[in-house]
């Protein structure tokens, strides 16, 4: 395959960026999108140019490091992570636009790399349990009803990639935060901090400058892990409950 790539290039956080056009040839349909970018970078390095910076780590769809808005879609046209997107989703001769996640809470570091540490700070504000866990306990020691376990697992799938923020017209982090809150709040292990968790994580989310939710649903459409839109309603319910309880105290 021969492709034309239009890639966002930006030297550093302070510099102005712009789209630059590159041609790549000899791309196989079986390459992943990141391998295609590796091919481009090898060529750029051989020519003595600065390679395109992009985030990646596991390349198997589980770490949440990879990003990229491809032709306007977070993680590209398939519902998966960019590392698991393959070139067979494109046609020979295509022009592909590649841009970084856009949100003021995710400033560009260089080229396609953005700073997602705002997510880490949301987790630090309450995305943990305080019980000392030690080694894995006996599985039946704390029974969890099946629907609750399913609900927790569904939300535990969030890999913190930030596609939801990138896709949201308001740069809102509600889907991510709701995945984390719902995952722990439904479980007995997470119940001691049930109220403080949701209040503090939402507080941190707002402090980081993410936008509010207008229930547009772009986040859930973009999410590679299928975190559903009603997760946000479930978090709202938790937040309202926690705020009511705090008012009674």
């Amino acid at each position: 395959m021969k492709l034309t790539l239009r890639v966002w290039r930006q030297k550093n956080a302070g510099a102005d960026g712009a789209m630059s056009t590159y041609e790549v040839d000899g791309i196989s349909q079986d390459m992943s999108f990141l391998e295609m970018l590796d091919t481009l970078n090898e060529e750029l390095i051989l020519k003595g140019e600065d390679p395109v910076a992009f985030d990646h780590d596991c390349r198997e769809g589980i770490c949440g490091a990879c990003s990229l808005v491809i032709n306007g879609d977070a993680h590209g046209p398939e519902r998966t992570t960019t590392c698991q997107l393959h070139m067979r989703s494109f046609d020979d001769g295509d022009t592909i636009d590649i841009e970084p996640w856009r949100a003021s809470a995710f400033p560009v570091v260089k080229d396609l790399v953005v700073d997602r540490s705002a997510f880490d700070r949301i987790i630090q504000a309450g995305g943990y349990i305080t019980a000392p866990t030690g080694a894995a306990p006996e599985a039946h020691a704390t029974p969890v009803p099946k629907p609750d376990a399913d609900f927790a697992f569904e939300h535990a799938e969030c890999i913190g990639c930030g596609a939801c923020v990138a896709a949201c017209p308001n740069g809102s982090a509600m889907l991510f935060t709701s995945a984390k809150v719902n995952h722990l709040n439904v479980l007995p292990q997470g119940s001691p901090e049930r109220e403080t968790r949701v209040l503090d994580m939402v507080g941190q989310m707002d402090d980081e400058g993410f936008g509010g939710c207008t229930l547009t649903g772009e986040c859930a459409t973009a999410c590679p892990k299928g975190i559903p839109l009603p997760s946000i309603a479930a978090m709202n319910k938790e937040w309202l409950r926690a705020n009511r309880k705090a008012a009674k105290r």
């Binding site: 306007g72 809470a105 949201c168 936008g211």
Partner: peptide
């Protein structure tokens, strides 16, 4: 707040 949270538009509109 929403507009401020997403100051830069994507070049590729869809």
């Amino acid at each position: 707040r929403d507009i401020k949270a997403r100051p830069q538009k994507y070049v590729h509109k869809r």
